[in-house]
Design a protein around this nucleic acid. Structure first.
Lengths: 237, 237
DNA sequence: CGAAACCTTGACTTAGGTCAACAAAAGTGG
DNA sequence: CCACTTTTGTTGACCTAAGTCAAGGTTTCG
């Protein structure tokens, strides 16, 4: 089985929820409204927290993280975006967080005045925002109430198509219950997303390995031996 | 000075940010689109997580919290709503969290089909959601990276008009830097909002009292002696 | 090949959780 | 209005999950 790119994994909560993706990657959602595309290489900042808001972005391919910093340097990654997600809407005049690519990414830029004008765009926007809000709610539970193991298990499960959401479809028909994934994130980025330290993430991963739940082929290439077993460790079952 | 009701406090982050509130309480935002109003008394559930989504709600007066539960009973309050906020949009077919009033509240209900139809409603919705998303981002930083004292300090600062946001306007012209507030929340609700235990919240409050930063008149009536001093403890300055 | 970045592991510390006792309010019914 | 129960909040003693600090191993890149 080939390692699947995180950026290409379909795993919208909506999809596992009602079968209908709201912000469908692949299928054009914003491109049909015009605007221009642009490419950004790995680890480049698309905009900084505090920059004046000029346009709206849609992630077309690759992956982007949004994070906020405290003055003493503590960082919290607040969203991990995947193709089809929109970002850059802050409600105010400045971006409320920094947007940085995790992999080479393609984004679609739409002028804010255009967003203001188009009814169709507003409609698509509402759906995307609603979706992202549900993800933020779930992440608040993770940050506020889950243990380190539960956080890491939840994080890994989110990368498995149709298994990260509220509804888990269970192992595949053929009984196959393993999965390969590539992270595209450093331990520090994972730690900042999960509200942990780099050492704790490393220790938990080693622990899962020792318990036989996962196999670590390379730091960012992880094979899940028993997806269901991992699912049981998310605190949600 | 009279104790100010949390529900009536204007403290939108947008307000302290650019002076223009997006979901203005008082000023009608959804009522003009029709729909019906309804009243709910203290601690009543408006909808449960998992209930089928039928309509959208706008909080007109009072205060409502949205929370999620883990199967073992752990709870995380994901949003504290104030007048003008909308809730009940889950993106799927079921609500992703439970909505419960903290005080007697008045809500405005709008049928989902109507939301789907109206362009104006979609426009208002986008603005509200964007706003709520920024609040969720900030809350993720609190849950993921702040200490117990910083969480409680941030929580209290959010209840002070124009002082809870990114931009703090500083003490008033006349140098007066104290403020009275009423919480309308039990220690358990505060703990579940801040990702702490009831005991830790209690201890931190006692500590702030000992340090002379606040005065606790009744469990839910707190006088801030030095708002600026408290602001310094939020981890944001 | 060597430097820099990244990851892992161990030893130790600590912030915040748990458990338990008690105090203070807030209902409730006579 | 007063006993009495129930709910809510406070405090102390103790424990533990996760953080900090430090050393060493691996991978990546120029």
């Amino acid at each position: 089985m080939a390692y699947l790119d995180v950026g290409t994994v379909d795993q919208g909560v909506a999809a596992s929820h009602n079968g209908a993706r709201l912000c469908t990657p692949g299928k054009a959602s914003f491109s049909e409204f015009g605007g221009k595309g642009s490419r950004h290489q790995t680890h480049s900042v698309i905009f900084f927290e505090g920059d004046p808001v000029k346009r709206l972005y849609e992630l077309v391919s690759g992956s982007v993280m949004l994070y906020k910093l405290l003055p003493d340097g503590r960082r919290q990654v607040v969203e991990m975006l995947r193709p089809g997600d929109i970002f850059g809407l802050a409600g105010g005049e400045e971006y409320d967080c920094t947007a940085e690519t995790l992999t080479d990414s393609e984004v679609h830029e739409i002028d804010l005045r255009q967003v203001e004008r188009s009814d169709d765009l507003q409609r698509t926007l509402t759906k995307c925002l609603t979706n992202q809000m549900r993800v933020l709610h779930e992440h608040a539970v993770l940050l506020g109430r889950k243990s380190a193991i539960e956080r890491v298990a939840s994080f890994l499960m989110h990368l498995v198509p149709n298994r990260g959401g509220v509804v888990c479809t269970g192992p595949r028909e053929d009984g196959e219950d393993s999965y390969d994934l590539k992270l595209h994130m450093t331990r520090q980025e994972i730690a900042d997303y999960l509200g942990l330290t780099i050492e704790t993430v490393s220790r938990v991963v080693s622990d899962l390995k020792r318990r036989g739940v996962i196999r670590v082929d390379k730091a960012d290439k992880i094979h899940l031996n028993r997806v269901c077993g991992l699912c049981q460790m998310t605190g949600m079952h």
